[in-house]
Design a protein around this nucleic acid. Structure first.
Lengths: 133, 133
DNA sequence: GTTGACGTTTACGTTAACGTAAACGTCAAT
DNA sequence: ATTGACGTTTACGTTAACGTAAACGTCAAC
């Protein structure tokens, strides 16, 4: 009943993660190629930490919002300890605010679309009533 | 001061729409190729109606939400008079509800991302304070 | 009458995000 | 010792959504 049967610490195999998130192992390796995840190696085999899992989660969440991998990478980079100098830090703040604005735009878009769908539902149900003549 | 200087009714040229929405004319023609817009022709020239403009708006809104052109087409199709038979109508209702669920998922994703960005802001500001030593 | 702004079609090029296949290693089970 | 499940690398293929260039028509302006 344990997801990491043979592993001592919290770690995952590539196929475990693939199955959990409904993606292929090829996809996960592709993300590694693009520098989004860097799992450890036990010999030649990839071993994923809980942090790696979180990164995957963030990537897929970004995907659902239509973000590119580069954009997701940006968001992930915003998460870890801002290690830069003062200028880098203020630019980071700007980028964060920029993302925030983008997300707010998406919220507005969603509201409008949901309203449209409400209307569509109404019209369709009306058309259905017409059919019951 | 009129957007449709030489036109009698409400209509737009391809470059007017391109400029208004910040896209290229090539993009608009591409959407036409894909069957998302079907402007009239005055001779060989495309003439866009207000309805065409709305369609464009919906497409671009979909884009901002990461929807493919096919998905946007679906949403647009949901808007016009549901002309089908009873079975088609109920399937339409299902598709609408499906889209609605997808949008709700996006709302949740956005909430979580915004929370992450809040944390990121806090950490970055903390790092900035460290710098003022 | 030619220049320039705007339009057209046709077609090849490009980038992102994987899919898919080949060819191979490894280890547990039969 | 061979089968099967899982892992690896390398590499070519694919789809979506345009970009870009070529080659041309049209119409008002100079």
């Amino acid at each position: 009943m344990n997801a990491t049967a043979t592993n001592s610490a919290d770690s995952y195999s590539i196929s475990e993660l693939a199955q959990e998130f409904g993606i292929t192992t090829r996809t996960i390796r592709f993300y590694e190629d693009k520098g989004l995840i860097s799992p450890e190696r036990r010999g030649q085999t990839r071993v994923y930490s809980p942090e790696d899992r979180v990164r995957l989660k963030l990537i897929l969440r970004g995907k659902r919002l239509g973000f590119s991998l580069d954009e997701s990478r940006e968001i992930i980079d915003m998460y870890d300890p801002a290690h830069g100098n003062l200028e880098q830090l203020s630019r980071l703040l700007e980028r964060i605010e920029s993302k925030r604005e983008q997300l707010r735009q998406q919220q507005r878009d969603i509201e409008k679309m949901l309203a449209q769908l409400d209307e569509a539902t109404a019209r369709t149900q009306a058309a259905l009533k017409e059919h019951s003549n």
